[in-house]
Design a protein around this nucleic acid. Structure first.
Lengths: 129, 129
DNA sequence: CTGGACCTTCCAGTGCAGGGGAAGGTCAAG
DNA sequence: CTTGACCTTCCCCTGCACTGGAAGGTCCAG
């Protein structure tokens, strides 16, 4: 299977698959005599795994770690668990930060609901920020 | 006042102030005869405004819009209000996405709590992702 | 045998907010 | 007169996951 067909099956682009190969997410593809990449159909499952990892908020580097462990013949379960734990902690922190920011902005926004440009002193940029 | 002193007063670096000037957040500074930038003390207030804008989650480009309006002699109240509204909507959406992601990962994590590598089939990368 | 669809490599850029460091000029103190 | 702190411009680098495009090779149908 050539790269375009695989890309379409996996719901991505040929460009992205070359990029994944370069990043070590896909093993270097077999080549036809003329130099075209030639993929086994199972490769699509690997790309799906990459997509599931992304959907779980993992970076390509993290997904690559999992794939490397698997490619070594080991079960990556524990590493996956650790990555999920770490990601979860990050997300909690991000949510907390965004919630705090939302509260801050909500308050600023309330103060700015009835702007009174006349009361703005010329030596400040904006009373409401 | 030279750039290093202003940077220290405003809690930032000389490098950043040159960058702000390049981005149009600060007007081109006066120069001493030898070419050094020479700032009026009020410039610190403008930098503080930039920092408050950043604390409100605005980009430098958005903060620049506000400053441009103010520099034109107008009151930027309405534009500030619109920017805060837009930022608020973005944040709500980000929180919603992160919350959904957290739930997804929490579920994945629960399934992966007691890994059973033996039950992993060799043709998939990881049962838990 | 020609056109068009596909493939190859390589280089470069995107957005965001700066940071690193080179090569050289300036200024005050000792 | 020299040292060291500060300043100048200049260009490249960071992270992340791609995307765009140029120049050229391959393959198949008509």
């Amino acid at each position: 299977m050539r790269i375009g067909e695989l890309a379409e099956r996996a719901g991505t682009t040929a460009k992205t698959l070359r990029f994944y190969e370069e990043q070590g997410l896909l093993p270097p593809a077999e080549r036809t005599p003329s130099g075209y990449r030639d993929y086994a159909p199972e490769t699509a499952a690997r790309i799906d795994f990459v997509h599931r990892g992304q959907a779980a908020g993992l970076t390509l580097a993290q997904i690559r770690q999992i794939l490397d462990i698997r490619d070594d013949g080991a079960a990556p379960c524990e590493h996956v668990r650790d990555l999920l734990d770490a990601r979860l902690a990050e997300i909690e922190q991000q949510i907390a930060q965004l919630t705090a920011l939302r509260d801050t902005i909500t308050e600023l926004r309330r103060d700015a609901a009835h702007p009174e440009p006349a009361t703005c002193s010329p030596d400040q940029v904006c009373r409401y920020l």
